[in-house]
Write a protein that binds this DNA or RNA. Structure first.
Length: 428
DNA sequence: GCGATCAGTT
DNA sequence: CACAACTGATCGC
């Protein structure tokens, strides 16, 4: 962020202080148990989870910040070569447990780094965040907003997580005799699982390592590692596939649910019929009754495979929420955090029209628009050669028999728990 | 043998 | 297709 001074979710360059918004893997690239470049600031929950993710990490480096309170840091200003005070406040990001935004105030002005965040107008937590931001900013304007632009494109639109969670419950309800598999990551979507657990009055199976995380979050009462106790299981997303579901269905009727903000477009022409075959499942007996029920409960939910539903449950803001957020803050400059997505091409391009209604910011916008166009050109240029690059990069694959698992993968497996794909893992 | 990076997956 | 978040392979030291 501030070169040589402050890094947020960046761990390789040299800074005086480091900030972690949350513990998802794409924000901890470069962090390891041996990392020791300087003090690391994060929320209290992230601090608690930190040792679980990086056992052996030098705990004296970790500083947990109280959410909603200003903290002062004395840093060396590289431009004036003298000590300068920077204030920072952690603000609830409403993304995953422990996730926060960081609001900085210093000689460089006011900067807000959102990390990943969800700005759900209906959610109390987002309202708290809003109040917190208002109180913190008072009359100050944000000079630079680093924003989670993951879904910063008008085509991304999805309901609140409350609504999506109910959709999930409805799906499960409509398959009373089925096992249910839900794809999740190592952190996040706990609220969805809790909602399911409470509404259906069942515990939810998670893999052993995930149960430890639940313990650390104080949520373990609603979870178990005993398969016999429940028909609802949350499994690692990377072990969730069509093949997995088909394999499971040879043993027990099983439905997979993938909570995701992605707008899955079901393209299969004429897929909703006998072409799906229903294979060996004896579903057809009660088909009519249940199909009617399912249709009623699950309209506008994507069933993109015979056994798989995707539900628009997202921990990132949808486009309209991003617009709301930017309108609310009206920052002088906007920078997208996510650089890989299409939306990065011009995070401000999609936003510029909202400035049209807000003359206060107009002059800053034109600057941003220019930046956006520039970025777009660069992206286009990069794309021109992409096929070539891809061809060059595409190496001849050597299909060695890899009996040998690397130490890294074994360690990762050990740390995260084995990749659980089915009905194994008896008890804790 | 390690971290860093690439490739591939849902 | 897209994305985030992940695993596993490979590269370079």
């Amino acid at each position: 962020m501030e070169r040589g001074m402050i890094s947020v979710d960046r761990w390789s360059e040299g800074s005086q202080v480091y900030f972690l918004t949350h513990l998802h893997a794409d924000h901890t690239v470069g962090l390891s148990p041996r990392w020791n470049k300087g003090p690391l600031f994060c929320s209290r929950i992230s601090a608690r989870l930190f040792h679980h993710k990086f056992p052996g990490f030098d705990t004296s480096l970790i500083r947990s910040l109280e959410i909603g309170q200003w903290h002062s840091l004395s840093l060396l200003s590289l431009s004036t070569n003298s000590q300068t005070t920077v204030q920072v406040m952690a603000i609830e990001a409403n993304h995953c447990p422990g996730a926060v935004m960081f609001l900085f105030r210093g000689a460089f002005g006011v900067t807000l780094y959102t990390g990943d965040f969800r700005w759900e107008v209906t959610s109390e937590i987002a309202q708290m965040g809003k109040t917190m931001l208002l109180n913190a900013l008072k009359n100050d304007k944000i000079d630079t907003l680093y924003i989670d632009n993951t879904y910063c494109n008008p085509s991304y639109s999805f309901p609140s997580r409350e609504v999506a969670a109910q959709q999930v419950v409805n799906i499960i309800d409509s398959y009373p005799e089925h096992d249910i598999i839900i794809g999740i990551d190592t952190l996040g979507k706990e609220d969805l699982l809790l909602y399911i657990s409470k509404m259906l009055k069942v515990k939810i199976w998670v893999w052993p390592e995930r149960l430890q995380t639940m313990h650390l979050l104080g949520l373990h009462d609603n979870f178990t590692t005993k398969t016999t106790l429940t028909r609802v299981r949350a499994v690692p997303r990377y072990s969730f596939s069509v093949e997995t579901l088909e394999a499971l269905n040879t043993m027990r009727p099983t439905i997979g649910i993938m909570p995701s903000g992605l707008p899955w477009k079901l393209k299969k022409v004429g897929s909703k019929d006998k072409s799906c075959g229903l294979s060996s499942l004896n579903k057809e007996t009660d088909n009519d009754l249940h199909m009617n029920m399912r249709n009623r409960y699950t309209n506008n939910i994507e069933k993109h495979h015979q056994y798989i539903y995707t539900v628009p449950y997202s921990d990132h803001s949808c486009f309209s929420e991003i617009v709301e957020f930017v309108k609310f803050l009206c920052p002088n400059n906007i920078k997208g955090i996510v650089s890989s997505s299409l939306s990065y091409v011009d995070p401000c391009y999609h936003l510029h029209n909202i400035y049209g209604t807000s003359s206060l910011c107009r002059k800053h916008v034109t600057k941003e628009e220019r930046a956006g166009v520039e970025g777009e050109c660069k992206a286009t240029l990069a794309c021109d050669g992409s096929d070539d690059v891809k061809l060059k990069r595409k190496r001849i694959k050597q299909y060695r028999l890899c009996v040998h698992k690397t130490r890294v993968s074994l360690l990762r497996r050990f740390n995260r728990g084995a990749k659980i794909t089915s009905e194994d893992c008896s008890d804790d």
